[in-house]
Design a binder for these strands. Structure first.
Ligand SMILES: [Mn+2]
Ligand SMILES: [Mn+2]
Ligand SMILES: [Zn+2]
Ligand SMILES: [Zn+2]
Lengths: 174, 174
DNA sequence: ATTATTATTGAGACTCATTTTCAATGGTAT
DNA sequence: ATACCATTGAAAATGAGTCTCAATAATAAT
């Protein structure tokens, strides 16, 4: 009944969903894939491949990056996770199975990332879809700005970098 | 007074704005930079670096990609263009100077890309900002789905690719 | 105009996230 | 057992974007 157990139950539920997907697609489930899912759902955090790989390595759950890269598309297709767009030039993901849809509010300065929901957005989506005859399947709504803390010590006026890419910042070992 | 002349006038206006920006930043204007701006504003199309480079090359306006990559941040900073997020794994841009803010409605199947404006979005932005104490400077709102044409011949159910990246699709010469 | 200063340019090397190749391994079904 | 073929890890490949460097050119100072 502990918090810890909740996480485990949670991951189990996701793994079950994944097994179904794998089966109906005629693919094969593997320990590597289950380890990956387990780790992803062991926290609520958004993640990128490198972070995930390191988290796993720290726990001695070694799976090659290639397999991580190969598993992620399956998780997206099966509706367990989805892409989240940050401004640092590579993809991030978050789990969505069992989460309600939400949008993000991000600080351009410190990277702080809040989630919020707003029903208006859904209405607008429906409305615009009708107007243009599109079948809309999803949306991305992100608010960018400065968090309370960063808003104060302003004047930091960072120069624009494509996608926020900053060279030599990712000192993550491989 | 021809349409053609309008484009030229248009580019002139942008170039003027750029010259100001360059000057106040203590940088130098160059023929290369003006050629790039001229080409960008010669159509209303969204573009990526490669497309721009090829468009220019076709018109014998040769500027290195390095210079294009170096000029784009200046154009973004000066408020002439901004990033647009597509699903093909690299950055696209659009001009905004003289355009009103708009969001995008994109077909996941054929890539068709419509623009629309909605005042509600602005209200929500303000509202959420207040709620969380953020100073919001911008937003991204994109609707993803299928255009009328593609919605019909459905079942195309494409497999997910990170950022929609498809290897071996960019047969653009370098 | 000359000269000094320093930003800019093009080529090509480089980085890094992601993809692909390939040989070895291992499920699954008959 | 045997055949079939999806999956894996390691390493090579890819490609958008960045950086280095020597040559050039815009601007400022004389
Ligand atoms: Mn989220
Ligand atoms: Mn647009
Ligand atoms: Zn912040
Ligand atoms: Zn379409």
């Amino acid at each position: 009944m502990s918090l810890n157990n909740n996480w485990i139950d949670r991951a189990m539920e996701e793994i079950e969903k994944f097994r179904d997907y794998i089966k109906e697609k005629g693919l094969r489930n593997t320990p590597e894939r289950e380890i990956i899912i387990e780790e992803i759902f062991s926290t609520h955090d958004h993640f990128d491949v490198d972070e995930l790989f390191l988290r796993m390595r720290n726990k001695k759950k070694i799976v090659s990056k290639a397999s991580i890269y190969r598993t992620i598309p399956l998780l997206v297709e099966s509706g367990l996770i989805k892409e989240v767009f940050f401004e640092d030039g590579h993809l991030h993901y978050e789990h969505i199975y069992g989460h309600k849809h939400h949008c993000h509010l991000r600080c351009m300065c410190c990277g702080r990332n809040l989630e919020f929901s707003d029903d208006e957005i859904e209405k607008i989506q429906k409305q615009i879809g009708k107007k243009y005859g599109f079948v809309i399947t999803s949306h991305r709504f992100e608010l960018l700005g400065y968090c309370p803390q960063c808003a104060q010590r302003q004047g930091v006026q960072k120069a624009y970098r494509p996608s926020g890419k900053v060279r030599g910042k990712s000192a993550k070992s491989n």
